[in-house]
């Protein structure tokens, strides 16, 4: 993610506050769609697609990086088609139930929210996001906690990776970590991560950190930033309140 955030594109160069506000507005609008408003939700894909096109980051990168989270999104509404079988429409021989519609709606909402969040982090970087949050007067403590948590997650993953490699090297015939070792593995991982987190914190203290984290100094907002914000917000609201899918459908009737 840090690597992606250092690419250079129009979208990358936008002021972090603009990107943060647009992302929040977009997610809020996506979540505001009723459970069965599938037709209204489709055009909402436009905003992230424009963002990805402007940033030069392929959409497939987002799906690839989020491949472990996406099944969880599907899991949220997985019981809907089973619990609610009321038929709402038929497509040839296929009857579509209300549960199926609500499941797809939830799925789309989750995917859109993830796509927008990924775009924000991949084009802004965590330090700049924290700077934007401070611009919104989010308490320093919360913002610093967010930043340090983000950094510590990578630490935890790196420790887990080292331990898994060490385990695999001494258990070559085994696939993954044996369930009997899970307890001690997780315990060791926790202790090692805590040790490293303490050492890292000490290193930060030794270099002037006193709970007040340095954030990337933001540049002043420029005219293109304001214009993009107005256009972006306009597009999001237009798609929310104008039934574009219905209007396009009427053209063919």
């Amino acid at each position: 993610m840090d690597e992606l955030s250092r690419l250079d594109s129009f979208y990358h160069r936008l002021h972090p506050l603009v990107k943060l506000l647009l992302t929040i507005a977009y997610i809020a609008v996506v979540l505001s769609f009723p459970v069965r408003s599938l037709a209204g939700l489709f055009p909402m894909l436009l905003f992230p697609l424009i963002g990805y096109a402007l940033s030069g980051i392929p959409v497939r990168t987002c799906f690839y990086r989020l491949r472990y989270i996406l099944p969880l999104v599907a899991f949220v509404g997985i019981w809907n088609p089973i619990l609610n079988r009321t038929p709402v429409m038929t497509l040839g021989a296929l009857t579509i139930s209300a549960g199926m519609i609500s499941f797809i709606t939830l799925l789309l909402k989750g995917i859109y929210a993830l796509m927008a969040s990924f775009l924000l982090i991949a084009t802004t970087g965590i330090e700049n996001i924290c700077y934007a949050l401070r611009c919104l007067h989010i308490p320093k403590l919360l913002v610093t906690t967010l930043l340090i948590t983000y950094r510590y997650i990578s630490l935890l993953l790196s420790e887990a990776g080292t331990m898994a490699s060490s385990y695999a090297l001494r258990a070559p015939n085994q696939k993954g970590v044996h369930y009997k070792a899970w307890g001690s593995f997780l315990g060791s991982l926790l202790l090692r991560s805590m040790d490293r987190a303490t050492a890292l914190y000490q290193s930060m203290q030794m270099r002037g950190f006193s709970g007040d984290f340095y954030y990337t100094k933001g540049t002043r907002m420029q005219t293109p930033d304001v214009l993009f914000f107005v256009l972006g917000l306009g597009l999001i609201l237009l798609v929310r309140f104008v039934p574009i899918a219905t209007l396009i459908g009427q053209l063919f009737v």
């Binding site: 950094r151 790196s158 490293r196 050492a199 890292l200 000490q202 290193s203 203290q205 030794m206 002037g208």
Partner: peptide, 20 residues
Amino acid sequence: LPEIRKKLGYVMQDSDNQLF
């Protein structure tokens, strides 16, 4: 400590603990 640490540089034993 804040004043001391301004004047004191500490290179730790494990580099991974220092770079974050």
